[in-house]
Design a protein around this nucleic acid. Sequence first.
RNA 1: GCAGUUGUGGCGGAAUUGGUAUACGCGUUAGACUAAGGAUCUAAUGUCCACUAGCGACUUGCGGGUUCGAGUCCCGCCAACUGCACCA
Length: 830
Amino acid sequence: MILREYDPKQIEKKWQRIWEEKGAFHASDRTDKPKFYALIEFPYPSGAGLHVGHPRPYTALDIVARKRRMQGYNVLYPIGWDAFGLPTENFAIKNKIHPRVVTERNVAHFKEQMQSIGFSFDWSREVNTTDPAYYKWTQWIFLQMFKKDLAYKRMMAVNWCTQCKVGLANEEVVNGVCERCGGKVERRMRSQWMLAITKYADRLIDDLDDVDYIERVKVQQKNWIGRSEGAEVDFTVNGRKMTIYTTRPDTMFGVTYMVMSPEHPYLDEWKDQIRNWDDVADYRKKSSEKSDFERTELAKDKTGVKLEGIMAVNPVNGAEIPVFISDYVLMSYGTGAIMAVPGHDTRDWEFARKFHLPIIEVVAGGDIEKEAFVDIETGTLVNSGFLNGLSVEEAKKAITEWLTEKGLGHKKINFKLRDWVFSRQRYWGEPIPIVHCEKCGMVPLPESELPLLLPDVDSYEPGPNGESPLAAMTDWVNTTCPQCGGPALRETDTMPQWAGSSWYFLRYMDPHNDQALASKEALDYWSPVDWYNGGMEHTTLHLLYSRFWHKFLYDIGVVPTKEPYAKRTSHGMILGQNPHYVGNFETQAEKDAMIEKYGADALRPAVKMSKSLGNVVNPDEVIDTYGADTLRMYEMFIGDFEKAAPWSDKSVNGVRRFLDRVWKLQEMMTADEGISADMETPLHQTIKKVSQDDESLKFNTAIAAMMSLVNKFYAKGSITRGEMSVLIRLLNPDAPHITEEMWENCGFGGYVYEQSWPEWDEEKTVEAMITIAVQINGKSKGTLQVAKDADKDAVMEVFRADQRLMTQIEGKQVVKEIYVPGRIVNVVVR
RNA sequence: GCAGUUGUGGCGGAAUUGGUAUACGCGUUAGACUAAGGAUCUAAUGUCCACUAGCGACUUGCGGGUUCGAGUCCCGCCAACUGCACCA
């Protein structure tokens, strides 16, 4: 056989076309096969196109999906577009094009790029969140939530991005600036749609026990939801009941003052009794002007004002204590007021020091002169009346019971999680299907009127007061009330980008259904997603939101499972070269200048890829030079899948060289259909290694094993047809194009994707003779060849027959002989 | 500050979970082929010493410990990354 050169350009397009024509990767709805649902986070089709980071997770699950098909599963590996969102809208404003047109263009580009990489997506199930047939059901879910009082409207301080001109969810504010654009975030009062995710806080934590998520995802979600167990206690302030929340009711005898949030509503009512009202008003004004960012910056230095003329009474001992306002107490958590225990809370301690307030020790074990003693494991209660001598744990229980009995308080669980700000005053999102009627109030649109289409507008710019561009569409806004038929106004806010992505995995199960978001049969068959891989940056946003929606849909009987995703894994980022890296510079002066200019970033050789740094690698170029199979395999070989890894143009070539070598194996193939005796063990070892590593995200070592195997064929100079068949099938999920081409060349018949996954025989993974290491006094001194099932005596016999080793222990007394079967011999001598 | 993760060659990274540390790849060096090679093939490649030869010494951020044996377990430091950031 005369072998053509390996030319990815030719064969990759060819096989992509064949797969498409054959519908090779279409999931079947009716089959006896077990199902497997693999999911990746569908992309936001940005104008910049795909970068080299996108294919990493897609390839990983493509490998799993392709392998599962060969193992006999009915696999669903779908793809779609999360296409609503601000960048598209901003681009549309700038260039005076309809966002729909921009979206179509971007989707087309993304699709072409993705298809050129050869993912085994089921393109017949492609979904797009901006498609009315899709967002009809996003709106439908919203209506169900509205009907269950989980969607409500409220005036509230929102995080307002001054650049995007849009309200943001707490989750979207990072370090006091907008997560998307980095713009300054202010607090503004605005009537906003909210979703009551906090009602699900408990279940969102508890049900994590039932799913197989990587640990750091679970931890991050738990911390974000932030459950804390404590008590609510009623203090008396100026003769009035004021409730506080504490996680340390055991320290109540150590309360020396109280602190209220500057925004606390009681303050206005006490205006006449507060003798230093001017100071108080001044402090309130200053703290309201501080952005969250500034408040955080100043966190170390406590500020506050004492309320002159206001006294509080500690309910446990009747002690009179002063009351302060300070912005270290937040109105949005607990009750907006706290009891301060400076002996056992770091913030209270700092505040007390600054304002010269008494600090009382009520838990012995630390030194409260130096710092607050916050340990809850070791301390013993003192100076605390009936609690004296108890541990913190016991005291908490005792005091809570006592408070409950006296009617002064009760056990209480609080969460950091806040309700989800769900409205955006922007155009490119799902319209909220609610009508405001003077008589009837907020009325949901009848389901028969869904989808409520996004109308065409003249301008996509937000209004001067930040109202939605839809508000200017009077024809659209003016409508009739579905309930009373009277005049009414449509809601003009739209949903955030997170809406469409909160349930898209359900739509894939039955993407063309116009009677329901998906049929019951499809939901029952495909639920839950078996393996979901995505970025860590979505842990507290998309992942949490979609779990919430799914639980709601479960509650109203739409979906059959409590949790949407059985398994969640996460990939590391692919980093680019850092042009500012100080390692690149010769002189110390140059280095220092770069460190000065770019800070810690200058010390990192690799950083996040970004347009502004000009270090973005485009997959198209990689495919053009090396081919899609090389791109795929390099991204899998680059390092630990879960960790960030720097892109290296040079290393890519190593993978291409490997594929060239695989291709050239065809030249040395013999007609033998069997497995040669000397290759049996390496072959079975490789099958085992690849099969197991691909399941545990260790794609890099699976590839290393295949490289070693190929090197063995080269060392030998031949490969049988039988061995070739196994190798091609093993390599197919990683490099699907070259393997299909070779399969065809070799005349095996059919296609690789329809073949079965090779299986290994455990017996055959072990050589008859094995090499075991020999240590003398724990130091490696050589190796021994023994039969694989040799016992200790047999091994020691081989040891004693070895002259070189024996000279090592000559004249010494053997104290101990240790043999770990198949691994090591250690002889201890004296 | 708190939580989580991680420190292994010049580089990306392996190490069956306590058993020959540095697999696989990049890079580098030498040789082969060649008119030529930035292609390909072969070999070498942790550091130091010896180099006629090795059964030589040292080595997984630093310092201790447990063990016949530690990259892996324990204690104490140091550094980096990610997330949270006054959540009572």
